[in-house]
């Protein structure tokens, strides 16, 4: 019996070696190890043997079974690896043949600049205020200490709207009306920035648009000073432009702030670039909003957003921002 089994093992090994596909291996598996196999028959016969003989024969049956199982497993591995290789070879791809893409869209440069600015001011403890683009003379001028006769009114080059009395309703010429709306509706302390579109009768050219974007900051708190304004501008400029950029304030004039200043940032060559205007909120403006200027003081500052985008990407024509040319938009 042991001889027969050994012969079986030898032939099994040969046949497994010769198998050329996984189906053949499966057939051999059934034939050699199945219920009707020679091994199963041998195992059944073990009970009929003498104890001495049975022990040796039993060991042989198990050993040969394990050997055949190992052979089957090896044959399977060999053949499935070969089959996989055939699949690999058959479905080779050149990934540089790009036929399509999931194209991500783009945020407008103004949005990107505005988001960055908002994030910096949020990190400094500010919230974001917004307001309408069509405004009344009260919000755009009068509450801001610019009476009807004031020469400064002319310098705003305001675009008026056919509503109300002549020159009563207009496209806001700055974001400062948001200051007024905020102060009218909020108890100090106030720490806000107000980004948004503003309008002037500027003919569109490479450096001007009749509709452009500004961001304006307003702080109203106890004991706010011009030094607080200078420090805040410096902190913002360091966060936005980098710690090496210097700032300076130069006296200037706005009807809604006093003292007023222009603020400049340093260029790498040491020259100064005028960024925006700022100042300590004029007591008349606080009073116009029902805030007691003896108890509260504030500062405000503002500058253009579009210009930052123009500067950052060295655009040669600001009109690109409103042309909506997809060949421009997709660059960012």
């Amino acid at each position: 019996m042991i001889d027969e089994l050994e012969a079986l093992a030898a032939s099994a090994e040969q046949r497994l070696m010769a198998a050329t596909d996984l189906d053949g291996v499966a057939a051999l598996d059934a034939e050699l190890l199945g219920k009707k196999s020679q091994l199963s028959a041998a195992k059944k016969k073990l009970g009929t043997l003498e104890p001495e003989e049975r022990k040796a024969a039993g060991r042989a049956v198990n050993e040969i079974r394990q050997a055949i199982e190992a052979g089957i497993s090896a044959a399977r591995q060999r053949l499935s690896a070969a089959a996989r290789q055939i699949q690999y070879d058959a479905e080779r791809l050149d990934l540089s043949e790009r036929l399509g893409e999931i194209r991500r869209g783009s945020l407008h440069l103004n949005t990107q600049a505005r988001d960055r600015l908002e994030d910096v001011f949020v990190s400094m403890g500010y919230t974001i205020a917004e307001g309408p683009e069509v405004e009344t003379a009260w919000y755009n001028f009068e509450a801001l200490n610019i009476p009807e006769w004031h020469p400064a009114r002319g310098s705003f080059d305001t675009i008026f709207v056919d509503l109300g009395e002549p020159e009563e309703v207009m496209l806001r010429s700055h974001t400062s009306p948001v200051q007024i709306r905020t102060m009218e509706n909020t108890e100090p302390p106030i720490y806000i920035v107000a980004p948004g579109r503003t309008f002037r009768t500027d003919t569109a050219d490479a450096t001007h648009l009749p509709a452009f974007n500004q961001i304006e900051g307003l702080v109203v708190d106890r004991g706010i000073t011009l030094g607080d304004l200078a420090g805040t501008i410096e902190e913002f400029v360091h966060a936005f432009f980098g710690g090496e950029v210097k700032t300076r304030l130069r006296p200037s004039y706005f009807p809604f702030t006093e003292p007023s200043a222009e603020f400049d940032i340093s260029r790498p060559d040491g020259s100064w670039l005028e960024l925006g205007g700022c100042g300590v909120v004029h007591p008349n403006v606080l009073a116009n909003c029902g805030i007691d200027p003896e108890e509260w003081q504030g500062f405000a500052f503002g500058f253009g957003i579009d210009r930052l985008a123009v500067m950052r990407y060295e655009l040669d024509d600001i009109r690109e921002l409103v042309n909506n040319d997809v060949r421009f938009l997709r660059q960012f």
């Binding site: 949020v122 500010y126 919230t127 011009l226 030094g227 200078a230 006296p251 006093e258 200043a261 300590v280």
Partner: peptide, 30 residues
Amino acid sequence: TDVAEEVGRLYGYENIARTVPKGEDAGGLS
């Protein structure tokens, strides 16, 4: 306030010490 501005102007804005006020509330987007 007009007079204060004149004092500041002649004293020199660049000579004013810079400070940063901090509100009590956290900033954030709505």
